[in-house]
Nucleic acid binder design. Structure first.
Lengths: 142, 142
DNA sequence: CCATATAGTCAAGTAGCTTGACCACTTTGG
DNA sequence: CCAAAGTGGTCAAGCTACTTGACTATATGG
């Protein structure tokens, strides 16, 4: 098995585990894509257009995604402090709870790997991946 | 940035690069999901049901995907040698060319990483990921 | 042989996007 | 200061890649 196949398989596995962990902690009706939205919203919120750029989709698509998470109580639309056209999307308390749940699930998955590989090798993995992965908009893995 | 985020970002980046490489080599109208189908079909073909299980979708969904790649000349449906109900989906010559193009693109991306990390570290990355990634059906990364 | 299971397809429905049109507000520059 | 162009957001319609449900053809096990 090649590096590329292993990487994609590991990413798929991780996504699945995070999602299962989030559901197990009582947050339903969410898809993995929402997690990336939450991550972008968590530090201070974002506009719909910024969110769309981050997720690699149109602002209309992002707006629909925001509709969903607002309807489920994870976020809310506030007037933007500096621009009357814009709205600042911010997480609610429930949204922050859910974000923490996702972080815990991710940490759990990584901890399971640490048992297989050992702490040192996990750190090496992390460092290698960090040097590979560029910052920027999220891309769907497939 | 955490390991999990780096892993997902690297996987997204890789998928994007493979896809770009495949397009650059003249194979259009394909999505990343098709690559996983090709990988399953390459060694001796598979039935629609097997393909669906591998891709984590229903047999109807897999059948529609097969319709597409057959229409574009990448695969063909043959009678199954042992079971008159079933059909064996096999890659055409063009399908095998496309599979090779994808492998080349993946190798190119990995080679670029090797320049950043060095051969040894890439091998370490590969080994670590292989010990993490289980075999089994493909899961969408999100 | 007959009952049940399995492979595949057809048809209709759905979710999650896209594109296009539009309004509200902001920025730019003469 | 104001007109023109740009930007943020939404609404509506359409599309695509799936899903579920129903069905036919073949296989399998008692």
């Amino acid at each position: 098995m090649a590096l590329s196949a292993a990487l994609l398989a590991a990413a798929g596995e991780l996504t699945q585990r995070i999602h299962e962990g989030v559901v197990a902690r009582g947050f339903e009706g969410l898809r993995p894509a929402h997690g990336f939205a939450f991550a972008r919203l968590a530090p201070g919120g974002a506009t719909v257009t910024e969110l769309g750029a981050h997720l690699g989709m149109t602002k209309q698509g992002a707006s629909q995604l925001v509709d969903e998470i607002v309807r489920r109580g994870y976020a809310e639309r506030r007037p933007h402090p500096d621009d009357a056209r814009a709205r600042l999307i911010v997480l609610t308390e429930r949204g922050r709870d859910c974000t923490r749940a996702a972080e815990e699930s991710a940490a759990e998955a990584v901890a399971a790997w640490a048992e297989l590989l050992g702490e040192g090798e996990v750190r090496a993995l992390r460092d290698g991946l960090l040097r590979i992965a560029p910052y920027g908009p999220i891309r769907p893995a497939w």
